[in-house]
């Protein structure tokens, strides 16, 4: 799997390259600035990009802007954005094209290597990987939403994990229940929130995120 990496701190860049190579990713280019990242993304059209939000020259949200711009030019280009902090505003901007293939994670999540690699693979396959912190913010805000308050605690848990972008199997493993039980919870959730139930995992996640985001 071909990866473009955008990270300006040498230590982290080398660490990420090593980590990715250990899991058989092919890092085609590792860049350290916003403009270089945009060029690399458009030139290489990688299977997935791993991008730091804060990059030179402005050291603000250069990486995020480059990723969004690249997705405008190459629709659906899978991008996993890493950041020292998560901001719901940025998650919203990343998700706004409703195309999927988007990840937005705290940098800390890298330390759980297996989960992190799983997130990259998910994003590359057109899925989503949202940081639990983003989702918990969304769910807290959801407390003023009538339908959302009718969910049982278990359903809320499932909803949270689903919004993070996890598959039914992963949710089942996480909650120590069968996949069938998860499927039932999801059907209930979609019924209560009045969302059209889709067979496609990714589309289902996007529907949930869109629902949470418009609250």
């Amino acid at each position: 799997m071909r990866v473009v990496l955008g990270e300006d701190l040498v230590l982290l860049r080398d660490g990420l390259i090593r980590l990715l190579q250990a899991y058989d990713f092919d890092v085609v280019e590792a860049v350290d600035s916003g403009p270089a990242l945009l060029k690399a993304l458009v030139d290489h059209r990688p299977d997935v990009a791993v991008v730091d939000v804060r990059l030179p020259p402005t050291f603000t949200d250069e990486g995020l802007r480059a990723a969004i711009e690249a997705r405008k030019r190459v629709p659906g280009l899978p991008v996993l954005v890493l950041s020292q902090y998560v901001e719901q505003l940025y998650a919203r901007e990343l998700l706004s094209d409703r195309a999927g293939g988007v990840g937005y994670l705290l940098k800390d999540r890298v330390s759980d290597v297996k989960q992190f690699v799983d997130a990259i693979r998910r994003v590359a396959a057109g899925g989503t990987a949202m940081d639990p912190e983003v989702i918990s913010q969304l769910l807290t805000r959801g407390d003023r939403d009538r339908p959302l308050t009718t969910l049982t605690p278990r359903e809320r848990e499932v909803l949270g994990l689903m919004a993070e972008g996890r598959s039914n199997a992963a949710i089942a493993a996480r909650l120590f229940v069968t996949e069938k039980a998860v499927g039932k919870h999801i059907a209930n959730i979609f019924g209560k929130l009045d969302l059209p139930l889709s067979e496609d995992d990714n589309r289902r996640v996007l529907a949930v995120l869109a629902y949470l985001d418009r609250l």
Binding site: R54, T60, D61, Q84, Y85, E87, Q88, L89, Y90, R92, Q137, T140, R141, D143, R144
Partner: peptide, 26 residues
């Protein structure tokens, strides 16, 4: 860091930071 100088304020200025604040507000 958020308490000292919120990164989103540096990134997006007052407008973006206030919008982010509004998003996080109950």
């Amino acid at each position: 860091v958020r308490g000292i100088h919120p990164p989103v304020l540096a990134d997006r200025g007052l407008e973006g930071a206030l919008k982010a604040l509004a998003l996080a507000h109950p």
